[in-house]
């Protein structure tokens, strides 16, 4: 056997990097940033020029000052919201994965249970949150359950799809080598499902945050919670509109951070599927 390996090998174009990022990534970062800066400037100027009272619409600079001034109380609330969000996401990921694996073992289980997962998905969380808050004593657990309900479905449905979408020829290959069901699950179906699982996780990350906030809005009317949603309600009652915006800003930033972090995880876990990790010879 000779070493004729050049074959039809395509050589990948070298990635041009500017400040650690591929050159073509910069417009994706710079353009939205530019739009953001422009809009904030227009907002700031419009409010100042027209003398809009701060309890109607505060300018960005005032919101930012409020955020810094109230950072202590806001950061405590942020911590609580984050705890609930991540706990809900973790439970959703764990249970979603476990249930999807169960579905993959038996078509009957999937047929019988999947519709109920859909019911859970289509029921508006605001409608059932009050019930959950009444039934569950610990408010944090109640909020966690609400956030979990919202975050659960994308992970379950994506992972179920992923487990079933393993390459048919690979499935045949596993049969040919008389692999056990367990081997097929661990070495073939779970890895095949990883991209869809991670895509589901990314969607659910944002949803868990929304679920946590919405549930707290419902609960917050009883004054029992203290996450970011409660800060918004509280500020609203007291007509402290800049503080309301500051809390809103924190929620947005948190959502973006979760989305980016899960995107990074997705990239790190899948990069070898999409890029050459190896220098080619010959």
């Amino acid at each position: 056997m000779t070493n004729r390996i050049g074959d039809d090998a395509p050589s990948p174009p070298p990635v041009r990097r500017v400040l650690f990022l591929p050159a073509e990534a910069w417009p994706k970062i710079l353009m939205p940033l530019l739009i953001g800066i422009l809009s904030l400037s227009v907002w700031e100027i419009a409010v100042r020029v027209n003398d809009v009272p701060h309890y109607v619409l505060p300018p960005p600079s005032v919101i930012w000052q409020t955020l810094l001034r109230d950072w202590h109380s806001l950061s405590v609330s942020l911590g609580i919201t984050l705890q609930i969000t991540f706990a809900a996401l973790a439970v959703a990921a764990g249970l979603g994965l476990a249930l999807a694996v169960l579905f993959a073992q038996s078509k009957w289980i999937e047929l019988s249970l999947f519709p109920y997962a859909v019911v859970l998905q289509v029921t508006p969380i605001v409608a059932i949150a009050p019930l959950i808050i009444i039934w569950v004593d610990d408010i944090r657990i109640a909020l966690l359950i609400c956030a979990w309900i919202v975050a659960f479905f994308p992970i379950l449905s994506n992972t179920t799809l992923g487990l079933n979408s393993a390459d048919h020829n690979l499935v045949d290959l596993f049969r040919l080598y008389r692999a056990s069901r367990f081997q097929q699950l661990v070495f073939l179906r779970l890895p095949s499902a990883l991209p869809l699982f991670l895509a589901g996780l990314r969607i659910s990350g944002g949803l868990a945050l929304i679920g946590a906030i919405v549930a707290e809005f419902v609960a917050g009317t009883g004054g029992r919670a203290s996450g970011l949603a409660y800060r918004i309600l509280e500020a609203g009652y007291q007509l402290q509109i800049p503080r309301m915006f500051a809390a809103l800003l924190l929620i947005c930033l948190t959502g973006i951070a979760i989305f980016l972090a899960l995107g990074l995880i997705q990239h790190l876990a899948l990069r070898h599927w999409h890029e050459s990790a190896l220098k080619r010879e010959g």
């Binding site: 056997m1 000779t2 070493n3 004729r4 390996i5 074959d7 039809d8 090998a9 395509p10 990948p12 070898h272 599927w273 999409h274 890029e275 050459s276 990790a277 190896l278 080619r280 010879e281």
Partner: peptide, 15 residues
């Protein structure tokens, strides 16, 4: 004939 390509991912290999 693929000595040296042990740790290449399929994506990095030609058809």
């Amino acid at each position: 004939g693929l000595a040296g390509f042990e740790h290449a991912y399929p994506r990095a290999l030609s058809g």
